[in-house]
Deep mutational scan, measured.
Amino acid sequence: RLHIEVEGTELMKKLVEEAKRRNLNVRAKVENGKWIIEID
Rank of each mutant, 00 (worst) to 15 (best):
R1N: 10
R1G: 10
R1V: 14
R1A: 13
R1W: 15
R1Q: 12
L2K: 05
L2D: 06
L2I: 14
L2Y: 14
L2F: 14
L2G: 06
L2Q: 08
H3N: 10
H3Q: 11
H3V: 15
H3I: 15
H3G: 04
H3M: 12
I4H: 03
I4T: 05
I4L: 10
I4K: 03
I4D: 03
I4M: 07
I4S: 03
I4E: 03
E5T: 12
E5Y: 11
E5P: 05
E5V: 15
E5N: 05
E5G: 04
E5D: 06
E5A: 08
E5H: 08
E5K: 07
E5Q: 09
V6T: 06
V6K: 03
E7W: 15
E7Y: 15
E7V: 13
E7G: 08
E7A: 10
G8S: 15
G8Y: 10
G8K: 12
G8I: 09
G8E: 12
T9A: 11
T9D: 14
T9Q: 09
T9S: 09
T9E: 15
T9V: 14
E10F: 08
E10R: 09
E10L: 11
E10D: 11
L11S: 08
L11D: 09
L11H: 10
L11M: 13
L11F: 10
L11P: 03
L11R: 09
L11Y: 08
M12H: 01
M12Y: 06
M12L: 06
M12T: 02
M12F: 06
M12G: 03
K13H: 09
K13M: 14
K13F: 13
K13L: 14
K13I: 12
K13Q: 12
K13G: 04
K14I: 12
K14V: 10
K14S: 07
K14Q: 12
K14H: 07
L15W: 09
L15S: 00
L15T: 02
L15G: 01
L15E: 01
V16D: 01
E17A: 14
E17Q: 13
E17H: 09
E17V: 06
E17S: 10
E17L: 10
E18K: 05
E18P: 00
E18R: 06
E18D: 09
A19T: 01
A19R: 00
A19E: 01
A19H: 02
A19V: 04
A19I: 07
A19K: 01
A19W: 10
K20R: 14
K20E: 07
K20W: 09
K20Y: 05
K20V: 10
K20H: 10
K20F: 08
R21W: 04
R21E: 05
R21H: 08
R21S: 08
R22L: 14
R22P: 01
R22E: 05
R22M: 13
R22T: 04
R22I: 07
R22K: 12
R22V: 07
N23R: 09
N23E: 06
N23G: 15
N23K: 12
N23M: 11
N23T: 03
L24T: 01
L24A: 04
L24D: 02
L24W: 09
L24P: 02
L24E: 03
N25H: 13
N25T: 12
N25D: 07
N25W: 11
N25G: 08
N25K: 14
N25R: 14
N25M: 10
V26K: 00
V26P: 07
V26H: 02
V26W: 09
R27T: 15
R27H: 13
R27E: 08
A28R: 03
A28M: 13
A28P: 02
A28F: 13
A28T: 13
A28I: 15
A28H: 04
A28N: 02
A28Y: 11
K29S: 11
K29F: 15
K29W: 15
K29P: 00
K29V: 10
V30R: 15
V30G: 04
V30Y: 15
V30C: 15
E31H: 12
E31I: 14
E31L: 12
E31Y: 09
E31C: 11
E31G: 04
E31K: 11
E31F: 10
N32D: 08
N32T: 02
N32I: 03
N32K: 05
N32L: 05
N32E: 05
N32Q: 07
G33E: 03
G33D: 04
G33R: 01
G33A: 02
G33K: 03
G33T: 01
G33F: 02
K34D: 03
K34R: 14
K34G: 02
K34I: 13
K34W: 08
K34E: 02
K34Y: 08
W35V: 04
W35Q: 00
W35P: 01
W35G: 00
W35M: 03
W35D: 00
W35A: 00
W35L: 06
I36R: 03
I36A: 02
I36Q: 03
I36V: 09
I36E: 02
I36G: 01
I37N: 00
I37H: 00
I37E: 00
I37F: 01
I37W: 01
I37D: 00
E38L: 10
E38K: 03
E38F: 10
E38Y: 11
E38P: 00
E38G: 01
E38M: 09
I39G: 01
I39M: 05
I39K: 00
I39P: 00
I39F: 07
I39E: 01
I39S: 02
I39Y: 04
D40E: 12
D40L: 13
D40N: 09
D40W: 15
